[in-house]
Simulated scan of single mutants.
Amino acid sequence: MTRSWKAGAIALALSATAAQAQQAAPVPAAVPTPAVPGYTMPSTQMWDMTAPNGAIYRIFVSYPGKDIAPPPGGFPVLYVLDGNAMFAGFAEARRIQEGTDIGKSIVVGVGYPGDAAYDIRRLDDLTGGPPPPPWEALGKSPYGHWERFLDFLTGPLRTEIGKRFPVNPARQALFGHSLGGLFAAHALLTRPGAFHAIVAASPSLFWQEQEMLKEERDFAAGLASGKIAKVARIMVVAGERDETALERWDPQAFAKRIEPLSAYGLRSRFELYPGEVHITVPSRSVTETLRFAFTWP
């Protein structure tokens, strides 16, 4: 999260420096180049969708070829948050495995209009409260509406995907990284039956630590008492070189705390990726996420 924003600031500064240098140097005559079409990923669709509150989301979908029949009950679905940044990797990994159960599935990236990998709107969609220190300055942007976004994911968007593709409503999975991982953990703890599998990659649990801990306690009590009858399985992954100590410690601690809940039906798993930093964890997790989401059970 923080690394990508820093990288963006550095890139912006380098662009400004390069522009100044070009202004100072003689400008060579432009050489015409033939127009080259951009690459279009096979077996994909993209459209913009308006949520009930008027927010517009860019939806990316990767789906099996026409010669692949859906399994009994329909294709399983994986919803990938921060779709502008994450969708392509998941989509191509799915497509090249269409000869297996992993490839006989649908990947839905949920992003925002535009070409930027990350949009500031994610702060509003993926959190339930204000930014903690030292990110208070981000509080100038809207934040804290993750319930509204979760309603959109599990309501209008899921309905629209079901209209366009033959999907299995009982096999709907979720992947989120960083703030998306925080959101994924929140989805498990507060709507345990909304997805059948959840992957929280380097979840920024520190963002609203006390609220998350309360949600954990309520979730554990619900499982132990039998009030929660249906619960997703969850995989938590993190990078050995995540930039801040909290981004390394918190996912491990979270995984350890929920592991005993297997006695009440929660299936959980934790993976620490050697050598990976915060921003590279999603790429490392693609194949394992697809297996976790699409291998039955």
Rank of each mutant, 00 (worst) to 15 (best):
A253Q: 14
I106V: 13
Y264R: 13
V36T: 11
M212N: 05
A194G: 08
W296R: 14
S225R: 10
T244K: 02
F165T: 06
W249P: 00
R257S: 14
F294D: 10
A137N: 13
A7E: 09
S178Q: 03
V107M: 07
L205I: 09
P52K: 07
R191Q: 14
V31N: 13
L205W: 01
K214P: 00
L14N: 06
V110N: 06
R191W: 11
A220L: 03
P52C: 06
V281T: 11
H196T: 15
F206S: 04
Y118C: 09
F175G: 00
G38E: 09
P70F: 00
T244A: 11
N84S: 10
V286K: 04
R267Q: 15
G180Y: 05
A85E: 01
P131K: 05
D101M: 02
W47S: 04
A11D: 05
G114L: 05
F270E: 11
P71V: 03
Q172C: 01
E240Q: 14
G139C: 06
I120A: 15
A229T: 13
V199W: 14
V167F: 02
L246F: 10
F175D: 02
Q97Y: 04
V167P: 04
P260G: 01
V108C: 10
I279T: 13
L182I: 00
P32E: 05
S285F: 04
A7P: 00
Q20S: 15
W5H: 10
E276T: 09
A11W: 12
L138I: 07
T127L: 01
D119Y: 11
P134V: 11
G128A: 07
V36K: 13
G181K: 04
E240I: 09
K256A: 15
P274Y: 14
A220F: 03
Y273M: 13
I234W: 01
A9V: 14
A29P: 08
Y63S: 07
A263T: 04
A85V: 02
M46C: 05
M49G: 05
R58H: 02
T280H: 00
W47G: 01
I258M: 09
E136L: 10
A69S: 07
V27I: 12
F175H: 03
K227L: 06
V108R: 05
